[in-house]
Nucleic acid binder design. Sequence first.
RNA 1: GGCGCCGUGGCCAAGUGGUUAAGGCAAGGGUCUGCAAAACCCUGACCGGCGGUCCAAAUCCGCCCGGCGCCUCCA
Length: 469
Amino acid sequence: MALKIYNTLTRQTENFTPLNPDRVTMYVCGPNLYGPIHVGHAFSYIVFDTVKRYLRFRGYQVKHVQNFTDIEDRIIEKAQKENTTIHALSEIYIVRFLRELDALNIERADVYPRATSVIPTIIKITQGLIDKGYAYEVDGDVYFRVRRDEDYGKLSHRRIDDLESGARIAVDERKEDPLDFALWKASKPGEPAWASPWGKGRPGWHIECSAMNLETHGEQIDIHGGGHDVIFPHHENEIAQSESYTGKPFVKYWMHNALLRLTGDTSAEDKMSRHVGNTLWVKDALARHAPDAMRMYLLSTHYRTPLAWNDDDVDATARGLERWRAALKDAIAPTDESKTSPLNLVANETRDKFIVAMDDDFGTPQAIAALHELTREINRARGDGAPPAMLAPAQATLRELANLLGLTLQERATNALAAAPFIELLITVRKDLRAAKQFALADKIRADLAQLGIILEDSAQGTMWKSER
RNA sequence: GGCGCCGUGGCCAAGUGGUUAAGGCAAGGGUCUGCAAAACCCUGACCGGCGGUCCAAAUCCGCCCGGCGCCUCCA
């Protein structure tokens, strides 16, 4: 049994064999820091966070790098408009970005290089490409010579001629070919600039990722991830730059998640995009939904299948999640006694199903289904009167595997409510009323608390309470 | 014009050649409970349409209908 990954490069699902048998190098496209991120970005980061967690579960040591693109047309434009610097602007969005990732329980990458911190490497690569005949300078700009690269187009499976026939590319007469793209751009007055062999300038749009990979991982890496929309031209150009420079295959497995669309008021159902303005900010999504619910919702569809975000469906997922939490209620650590539990068998079967599902190109929908089944078995056993020690191993398995999907399954910290002692008091009073068969009054207390968003649930073990939201 | 994706029960969503088409939500019935809630049990689809290949297709091929992505910054 082996892990298989769909590779955009070959358009096939391949057995995963990293360059180094124990270690995996992974690079995931990070944000352009001209604004906050939307749930489409979050989806991508959640997907690759899940990939990383699973690789580690499979015994690999993972080095995860994610870039911060802090020099680019839009950032310059926005900084100028807001009368600030690209550095200050980036800093604001980096802080917000990390805070939102933390909220979604997305593990941080090991390294977050910034484009502006790898300028010397960018210059080195650019010069190297010129020396090898893959690039040329015109008036302080440096362009990559697409026609010189034999296999240009191999990732997006396009031919240069096809691209030119249909594309509306702004023709720049100084370029040898319309598809040649900038490695280095001469700076205009007032723009951030660095000294280079070609004069004052700044990096092009794709070169920073080649440079950051070279600096943090080396010439070859195992996994490069990003959204489907970034296959062309961004990743195509990255391959062209990196491979032409090093002469070696750049990335072993190219992974791309499908794009998220946004349903709702508009009749059109377009992909989410900051450029189009059709966005749901992560901040706003978090205001309505629990992070676990968002993650489980997004992982309930395979990462290569397009998904239309729907708030009601996230709510439905959240209700399903309640059963998982119920299953973990009052869980204790497994003991010697629990080894004889029949639930052990179920837990092991679930683990096998989970692994089979995840091994097949990260089949999170089936993995989640397996955990739903385990949840049902735990709840049923509890209903049948199984003691905590018997439930423990299955509960431990549920928690462990759910954690691999980044689900915390934590109850909201309702006990921290300032009203907690008073609620407890009312519950005690109500208990006495019930003992005295004063049901009308007892029900009134429950109903009135419900009005205030406090839900009471009676059970043989006593009365539990929780806060709605 | 080029490359590519999707259309499965009320909703979301797996399955991609062969036992009873996963799972979740919703709905209806039931168990438990003083009642309620929670939990559990039971109930539902022949897979967009037409044609073809095959002993056998939701699963392969063709056409059609409907929806979407990339080719331009974009996760």
